[in-house]
């Protein structure tokens, strides 16, 4: 191969993200370039560092392409983080498309030294518990819940939950021995942690409305490496990135979500639906979180209110 690109991310090599997306995508790029571009995969942070450093690693050339979560570096990529606020996500595909548009309109300067290839989210998180059914905010009061990120943790705390911020390894043991009552995560990660065996009930928001939360992701490439490619090869990368790739990644995560849900169903766990109207009242409770967020965007030199309004408009337009 003429060019070797090192791809670095934090998920294990057996994860569907590696086997169903990265491997396939690398193969497509290799074929489209007539074998000129070879992608070397480094899952599980094999090139060192921790997940929060992935974006910097791509910028500095420690790797060439990194798959990263903006929430891991709070406030560094505020526009890219916007969709990770509570009650934004609709489904992964639609939210990913909306995020891509939002980044094109407002976030052009966020990934300096990097060439963004795609932006996307996973599907909305569900509340998995050891047995508690959640129908209303009242049911959340006093529940010991593991929060997936800071904003969602704040939201759960506002609703009266006793939030904990365990690392996932602690979360798994905590769920099995009852240190915590539940966690808020999408179905997609259920197989990875065998959550279906650790929980009995999954409380999911009614389909079609807003979900509880979703993390945002960015797939970025080292800018010098990108600029240094020949015109032909750059065209290959261009053809395999951008809005289409964002949509594709979103759709892929909707598939992962469906598979995760089937695992929970197969286990015979109870799946309880939280009414969309109930979620709307929760969303009103989260108003202070949106206000804080707008302030944060303003501090970063953006028009915060405009960004949040645009994000909501894109999501509502579907």
């Amino acid at each position: 191969a003429e060019v070797t690109l090192r791809v670095h991310h934090f998920l294990p090599g057996v994860a569907p993200m590696q086997t169903r997306f990265f491997d396939v995508w690398a193969q497509e790029i290799s074929e489209a370039s007539g074998g000129a571009i070879e992608m070397q995969m480094f899952p599980s942070m094999q090139l060192g560092g921790k997940p929060p450093q992935l974006a910097d690693q791509a910028r500095q050339g420690i790797c060439d392409i990194a798959w990263t979560l903006p929430v891991y570096t709070p406030d560094r990529f505020p526009v890219a983080e916007t969709m990770a606020m509570p009650f934004m996500v609709t489904n992964a595909e639609k939210t990913s498309v909306a995020m891509h548009t939002l980044m094109e309109e407002f976030g052009q300067n966020e990934y300096k030294g990097m060439k963004p290839l795609a932006f996307h989210t996973h599907d909305g998180g569900k509340i998995h518990t050891r047995g508690q059914i959640v129908s209303s905010a009242e049911d959340i009061k006093g529940l010991k819940l593991r929060a997936p990120n800071q904003a969602t943790g704040e939201m759960l705390a506002l609703m009266g939950a006793e939030t904990v911020f365990f690392p996932v390894t602690e979360m798994v043991v905590g769920l099995s021995n009852g240190v915590i009552d539940g966690c808020c995560l999408p179905y997609e990660v259920v197989p990875a942690f065998k959550l279906q065996e650790l929980t009995k009930v999954t409380n999911e928001p009614e389909a079609g409305g807003r979900g509880i939360y979703a993390n945002t992701f960015a797939l970025v490439m080292n800018e010098r490496k990108y600029e240094g490619l020949s015109d032909d090869l750059r065209a290959v990368i261009d053809a395999h990135s951008g809005a289409d790739l964002s949509r594709r990644l979103g759709a892929q995560f909707d598939e992962f979500e469906a598979f995760g849900k089937s695992v929970v169903e197969k286990q015979g766990n109870e799946i309880h639906t939280i009414a969309a109207s109930e979620i709307d009242t929760w969303r009103e409770m989260a108003a202070p979180i949106y206000d804080t967020w707008i302030g944060k965007l303003n501090d970063a030199g953006h028009d915060g209110a405009a960004i949040v309004a645009r994000a909501n408009a894109l999501l509502d337009a579907g």
């Binding site: 891991y72 570096t73 943790g153």
Partner: peptide
């Protein structure tokens, strides 16, 4: 320069 902070304790 980046002003990176930890998630919870800031």
């Amino acid at each position: 320069e980046y002003g990176d902070r930890t998630m919870l304790l800031r």
